[in-house]
């Protein structure tokens, strides 16, 4: 039996209800919160500041350093050990690579911009929420950027191509499932993050990536709205 109705009755290309807010961490240079369904990411940006350890410094441009952390009881299941893990390190790395094409730190050689992303609650799609939040927080901090990065997961459950998978869909039992987090630059539509868990046919992959274009556009609209609203209120 094919997957014809989604667990939360959404349309196939419908995203979970999203919410974006700027300036949630007052002590940071820039900050943003991004919610997508039950997934919630808070990003805080510090810097450019002096880099330690010194050997990491790049004399031609500043470097971007991301730190991704899930809170201990953020998932629906067991306690997650706080701190660095193999998974957190991987996601921190892909976040850096997803954001680097837009961030321009040539004016700040030998310095570092730190992005901390904390996830108080998760329900799949955390790296996408983290990237979308980090992109807004970097803009809020006034870091020179060529563009904004918007990120969303697409995928396939039992032959049906979907956007923004929840944890229930990502772990759908006994069928072929794939989860493809995508991050896209708005103007050039270049993809700066593309990963995949599971299996997907070539036809469905192309269909999913086409769906990602529309889905990231919706995220982008929300990001722009949040940034502009933050500065328009009386």
């Amino acid at each position: 039996m094919a997957y014809t109705e989604r667990l939360d009755k959404r349309k196939f290309d419908e995203l979970r209800p999203m919410e974006a807010k700027i300036g949630v961490v007052k002590n940071a240079k820039g900050s943003a919160s991004f919610k997508s369904g039950k997934t919630w990411a808070i990003a805080a940006v510090y810097g450019p500041r002096e880099i330690y350890p010194k050997f990491l410094a790049n004399p031609t441009k500043g470097i971007l350093r991301c730190h991704y952390t899930m809170m201990p009881f953020s998932g629906s299941g067991e306690r997650i050990r706080p701190g660095k893990s193999r998974r957190a390190q991987e996601i921190s790395m892909v976040m850096e690579k997803a954001l680097l094409p837009v961030v321009d730190l040539t004016d700040f050689p030998n310095s570092v911009v730190d992005v901390f992303v904390e996830l108080p609650q998760t329900d799949a799609g955390t790296r996408c929420a983290a990237i979308s939040a980090a992109s807004m927080a970097l803009a809020h901090a006034g870091i020179p950027m060529k563009d904004l990065v918007s990120s969303i997961a697409v995928g396939q459950v039992d032959g049906t191509v979907l956007a923004d998978l929840s944890y229930g869909e990502e772990s759908y039992p006994d069928v072929e499932v794939s989860d493809i987090p995508v991050a896209m630059l708005h103007n050039s539509k270049q993809i700066s993050l593309l990963q995949m868990d599971g299996e997907i046919s070539k036809k469905d992959l192309l269909k999913a990536l086409e769906m990602a274009k529309g889905a990231t556009e919706k995220v982008y609209e929300l990001q722009v709205k949040a940034l502009k609203e933050h500065y328009s209120k009386e």
Partner: peptide, 26 residues
């Protein structure tokens, strides 16, 4: 012509500039 920062746009004659709303001190 694209903006490079979050800021206020100032089209002044033929030149278009953006004044940042926040940002590091240079």
């Amino acid at each position: 012509i694209y903006s490079k920062v979050l800021g206020l746009g100032y089209p002044a004659g033929r030149v278009i500039k953006v004044t940042p709303l926040a940002g590091p001190y240079v």
